[in-house]
Amino acid sequence: MKAIWIISKRELKVFFDSLIAYILIVVFLGISGFFTWLYGSDVFFTGQASLQPFFGIAYWTLFFFIPALTMKMIAEEKKSGTIELLLTKAVSDWQVIWGKFLACLILIAIALGLTIPYYLTIWAIGPVDHGAVWSGYLGTLLMSMAYIGIGLFASSITNNQIVAFLTSLFVGVFFLIIFDVLANNFTGFTGQLFNYLSLSTHFESISRGVIDTKSLLYFFSVTFFGLFLAESALSKRNIVE
């Protein structure tokens, strides 16, 4: 546990020492603020005191931002060879993966935390369904976990950051759109299966305030599966043919 935190701390330091963290936060707040308050189906257009528009935007912005955070995490270490240095210290492959995962999640949580003023503003405007807001935040965090899982997996299979970025977008697009489309095109079991696999199904229900164990299980499974594949890719060096 301690080793995981030491690794996370270092990754966070790297985020904040470089411009990555600040750019991410500023752009995230800028884009989500713009679409929540000023443009398209914003709060004033829908005429409801709800953060629904914000969560809808976060859904897409994070889809692009998280791969940008995760792409370098393992790929760069593999390229520069520092992964050898890290893994010959008293840490396991899993601890490295969890450490990196936690660092990303904390950064996203900070960015989301900075949107609390949106919530307070909405609250001042009209009657808010507080439960829906908090479950929306929870849903966004869960979704971020799934994205980070996918992103770390993509970063672990290559030592080229661009390839890692594109791979995670490619994998992500299945969960975001393609499974949803397929779900609409099939009926019966196949339709239900794709419906369950689609991230949007679970995100929509949770951001409306419906916290279902099936959805929780879904997000945790995607996250864990991504991290599991990342760990496997990392420990591939140990495979004995």
């Binding site: 270092r10 330091k13 020492d17 060879g81 520092t82 050898e84 240095l85 010959t88």
Partner: peptide, 12 residues
């Protein structure tokens, strides 16, 4: 352990 190519975190 000092690995061969001496990899280090250059940004730190």
């Amino acid at each position: 352990y000092l690995p061969e190519s001496n990899p280090l975190y250059y940004e730190m």
